[in-house]
Design a binder for these strands. Structure first.
Length: 490
RNA sequence: GGUCGGUUGGCCGAGUGGCUAGGCACCGGUCUGCAAAACCGGCUACGGCGGUUCGACUCCGCCACCGACCUCCA
């Protein structure tokens, strides 16, 4: 009934049937954030995309080990020799210990992820905690003959690797093109070829993040941490590696080369990449300076934002586009998502109040099949959401007495709706959360009872006064056939 | 310049060789003391030019435009 999951594999550029290397176990590795600044909307995309995958795999009863790293070393600011470590740079500016910066932004990241209802990964390793593993991997690569050392720095010999392996297979490049297209950067003279990349870099005297090694006091190269940590926690071969499309080249390409060189085998079976979030049609990114942090979305404090957008609005907005499409940010789009999300939540609440009848005019089984089909088709969350909206309409019709449902179907529908809305899409009803205060709820109920009395007496002015006053407090009153409902507006 | 991807209605965003999602906005109707909500209905598009086909938004070719990557980037 659940059919098979198909995922788009960047390696083959096609959707492939997902078959774990060792079912029911699934190993999933995703490139996490570099913690030297607040997370922005772009960071929410892979987090939510792979959260969706994680949730779906678990729903399909796979036993998933989800590893998402935190990058807290490496990643040079400019180029290999002239640049300084991003973390170190930020630390010097703020007069903080590098690890203090890392801790601060890691905590902020975790808070953002919690707000977005992103599940914690099974393991969240830090690059700085795996220096030894990275050094050991360099040695393996060196022993295999794919590394060379120049003045305390170790480089990966791409040309040699390419003789027996296809460097560029993931990103669709070939070494000749790279030869002619790689920019001439300063201080690259240590490398045999411009496309070679560092495995270990000797630290200059002022470089404060450094570790001792047999080659030099230095730090590991950009791409190494993911290879080392994925190997450590998921094995030399594992199922899925995810990340943003912008990491495809050179990061993931180099990961493949490193792992293959070190272990002798191809490491990843399925490569999955989420697309970018754009703003005014351009990628939102740190380097372009056009990013809006998640915190700013939640508080509405960025000048581009017309208002604050709740975490669930942001999550829903992202889920309404397929993960492999770009999604363009705009206030209009966010507000459409906000309204839509509210409609969905209202539907969930309406469903709770439906009373079963004798017969069903609703096809619950067809609904179920369509939902599974959507998710199994490369996590097509927008299609899933469209089916949920179709069902919301039917739920509302039931509430209006225009459609009917029997007890068996009703139970099943409630279960399905709950599963897909909350467990799979990972949404949560924020209004419900806000009204968590029982006293508040009781007070509102009291006022509404008074209003119903006034209404019975056709005392419209009292009636409207209560409704209007509540609205000013952010509480929306909706009359129904036999009474009224209320909800807290965000 | 190279590689890859995109161009869908007022906006966002799916998708398929013929039956052409969904949300938001807008318009009309039902309901309602009024409003809101809800329901019903309307609005209904696939960048341009050729080609394949009984039939293309969907396949192919060319062109235009946009973007990503080629440097850290989610």
């Amino acid at each position: 009934m659940q059919k098979d999951l198909f995922v788009y594999n960047t390696l083959s550029r096609t959707k492939e049937k997902f078959e774990p290397l060792a079912a029911p176990f699934v190993g999933l590795y995703v490139c996490g954030p570099t913690v030297y600044g607040d997370a922005h909307l772009g960071h929410a995309r892979p987090a939510i995309t792979f959260d969706l995958l994680f949730r779906w795999l678990k729903h399909l009863e796979y036993k998933v080990r989800y590893v998402r790293n935190i990058t807290d070393v490496g990643h040079l600011e400019n180029d290999a020799d002239e640049g300084e470590d991003k973390i170190a740079k930020k630390a010097r500016l703020d007069q903080l210990e590098p690890m203090e910066v890392v801790q601060y932004f890691s905590d902020r990241y975790h808070e953002n992820m919690e707000s977005l209802n992103v599940l914690k990964p099974s393991i969240e390793p830090r690059a700085s905690g795996h220096i030894i593993e990275q050094q050991l991997m360099i040695e393996k690569i060196d022993q295999a003959g794919f590394a060379y050392t120049v003045d305390g720095s170790v480089y990966f010999d791409v040309e040699k690797y390419n003789r027996d392996h296809a460097y560029g297979k993931l990103s669709g490049r070939n070494i000749e093109d790279l030869q002619s297209n790689t920019r001439e950067l300063e201080g690259q003279d240590e490398k045999r070829n411009p496309f070679d990349f560092a495995l270990w870099k000797k630290a200059r005297p002022e470089h404060i993040m450094r570790w001792p090694s047999k080659w030099s006091d230095g730090f590991p190269g950009w791409h190494l941490e993911c290879s080392a940590m994925s190997t450590k926690y998921l094995g030399e071969q594992f199922d899925i590696h995810g990340g943003g499309m912008d990491l495809l080249f050179p990061h993931h390409e180099s990961e493949i080369a490193q792992s293959t060189a070190a272990n002798g085998t191809e490491s990843v079976k399925y490569w999955m990449h989420n697309n970018m979030i754009t703003i005014n049609g351009q990628k939102m990114g740190k380097s372009l300076g056009n990013f809006i942090t998640l915190e700013e979305f939640f508080t509405g404090s960025h000048k581009t934002l017309e208002k604050a957008y709740s975490p669930m609005t942001v999550r829903f907005f992202i889920l309404q586009a397929h993960y492999r499409s770009t999604v363009d940010f705009s206030n209009e789009a966010l507000q459409a998502s906000e309204k839509g999300f509210q409609r969905l939540m209202n539907g969930v609440q309406a469903l709770e109040k439906i009373k079963a009848g004798e017969v069903s005019t609703i096809d619950v089984k067809a609904f179920e099949d369509k939902c599974y089909a959507a998710m199994n088709d490369d996590l097509n969350s927008p299609i899933l959401i469209s089916h949920l909206f179709d069902m919301v309409r039917q739920i509302n019709s039931m509430a209006d007495g225009k459609e009917q449902i029997n007890q068996t179907d009703l139970d099943q529908l409630k279960k399905l709706f709950h599963t897909f809305v909350f467990d799979v899409l990972g949404l949560r009803d924020e209004a419900k959360q806000d009204s968590g205060n029982e006293k508040t709820a009781e007070l509102i109920e009291l006022l509404l009872r008074l209003r119903i009395e006034a209404k019975a007496n056709k005392d419209w002015s009292t009636c409207d006064k209560i409704r209007d006053s509540l609205k000013e407090l952010g509480i929306l009153v909706k009359d129904t056939k036999d009474g009224c409902e209320w909800e807290i507006l965000s």
